[in-house]
Computed example of a mutant assay.
Amino acid sequence: MPGTVHTIILNWRTADMTIRALEYAVAAMKSVEGMITVVDNNSGDGSFERIASYATAADFERVHVVQSGHNGGFGAGNNVAMFNPLPEGGMPDYVYLLNSDAFPEPDAIRKLRDYLDSHPHVGLASSRIVGTDGVIHETAFRFPSVVSEFEGASRTGPITCLLSRYVVVLPVPESATEVDWAAGASLMMRRSMLERTGGFDEKFFLYFEETDLCRRARRAGWPTHFVPDSVVTHIGSASTGLKTMSRPPNYWFDSRQHYFRKNLGAGGALAANLAYIAGSLLFHLRCRIERRQGHDGPGHLSAIVRHGFSPRCKR
């Protein structure tokens, strides 16, 4: 029998967009056994009431709207419903995460489910993500490393060529293939893998949490695969507003630092920060020689230093 799926949509102050994502999810779940849970991450703006009222009025039989009780971030919000049983009893075979600003094609969820059904060794499967302008987003990645921090900060062609196998962003695969990690905008996860890894690490408020989960899954023998036949349209940063910021918010730097400390140890995190600083200084030296302005974002390098060399990660 095909596997059952529990779809989770996390809302934070984007009620209209979440309702739209819910409509798309309901349509995409028509041929899939399971349920849908919308978790309101303590929005405090009436989102929970609006979404719950809409789901009731629309008579969605398999939709549940719940309140997290506090905004602990992306991972904590999804963990609220991650291990919930199905209404008829028993646990779902898969948990599918869908961003509140992501809209799956009618067959997108089924194709991820079918892929995991036919590849029992795979722990996570992600979709091809397309922007509202039709541009395919880069959502398949290598794990960040000390070398990748230097390469990414240096932004220098010869260095990138030399260190190409460490570049974090992968070319978008044209066929299903294994990747280190994939963006969580549309990500299906095997429940047995989640039971072994324990879901998201809630010390990540936002960003790097799916990177960490995929890394833990890989260590436990569950790789991540990119499945381009599953297509989802994604707006991106609707809740965070990251696209419009001159530099990432403090919690991005905290999450980055926690990721390196957790996965590479204190020495590895120190090396990653020093590598980033060295690469950034090299980039700015090149800009000065070429007499052009470097675009790091105001305070970006100082934030790397401040958060990277603090005694412990802040929330």
Rank of each mutant, 00 (worst) to 15 (best):
Ser68Ala: 15
Asn78Ser: 02
His70Ser: 15
Tyr96Arg: 04
Tyr96Glu: 09
Ala52Cys: 11
Ala81Ser: 15
Gly75Val: 01
Ala58His: 11
Tyr96Ala: 09
Arg62Phe: 15
Val95Ala: 10
Met91Ser: 13
Gln67Val: 10
Thr56Ser: 14
Ala81Arg: 03
Val80Glu: 03
Met82Glu: 02
Asn78Gly: 05
Asn71Glu: 12
Ala81Pro: 07
Asn79Trp: 00
Leu86Asp: 06
Glu88Gly: 13
Leu86Gln: 09
Tyr54Cys: 10
Pro87Leu: 08
Ala52His: 03
His64Asp: 14
Tyr54Met: 06
Phe60His: 13
Tyr54Pro: 08
His70Tyr: 14
Asn79Thr: 00
Leu98Phe: 15
Ala52Asn: 02
Val65Ala: 10
Gly75Ala: 04
Gly90Cys: 02
Ala57Val: 12
Pro85Gly: 03
Val65Ser: 11
Asn84Met: 13
Gly77Phe: 03
Asn79Gly: 03
Val66Ala: 11
Met82Cys: 06
Ala58Phe: 08
Arg62Lys: 10
His64Glu: 12
Gly89Arg: 00
Val65Cys: 15
Phe83Leu: 06
Glu88His: 13
His64Arg: 13
Pro85Met: 03
Asn79Met: 02
Gly73Met: 04
Ser53Ile: 02
Val63Arg: 05
Leu97Gln: 08
Gly90Ser: 05
Pro85Ile: 01
Asn79Ile: 01
Asp59Ala: 15
Thr56Val: 13
Ala76Thr: 00
Gly89Trp: 09
Ala52Arg: 05
Phe60Leu: 11
Gly73Phe: 02
Val65Tyr: 11
Gly75Pro: 02
Asp93Trp: 04
Leu97Asp: 00
Ser53Thr: 12
Asn79Glu: 01
Ala57Phe: 14
Phe60Cys: 12
Arg62Pro: 05
Glu88Phe: 10
Asp93Thr: 09
Gly90Asp: 02
Gly77Tyr: 04
Arg62Tyr: 09
His64Lys: 06
Phe74Trp: 15
Leu97Pro: 05
Glu88Ser: 11
Gly73Ala: 05
Thr56Pro: 00
Met82Val: 04
Asn78Leu: 01
Ala52Leu: 01
Val65Arg: 04
Pro85Trp: 02
Gly69Cys: 13
Ala57Trp: 06
Val63Pro: 07
Gly69Trp: 14
Gly72Lys: 09
Glu88Thr: 08
Ile51Pro: 03
Pro85Glu: 05
Pro85Lys: 01
Gly90Arg: 06
Gly73Pro: 02
Ala58Pro: 05
Ala76Gln: 00
Ala81Phe: 03
Ile51Lys: 01
Ser53Arg: 06
Val63His: 08
Ala58Cys: 15
Phe74Cys: 02
Phe60Met: 03
Gln67His: 15
Thr56Glu: 15
Val95Gly: 01
Ala81Leu: 07
Glu61Arg: 07
Tyr94Trp: 15
Leu86Phe: 11
Gly90Met: 08
Ala57Cys: 08
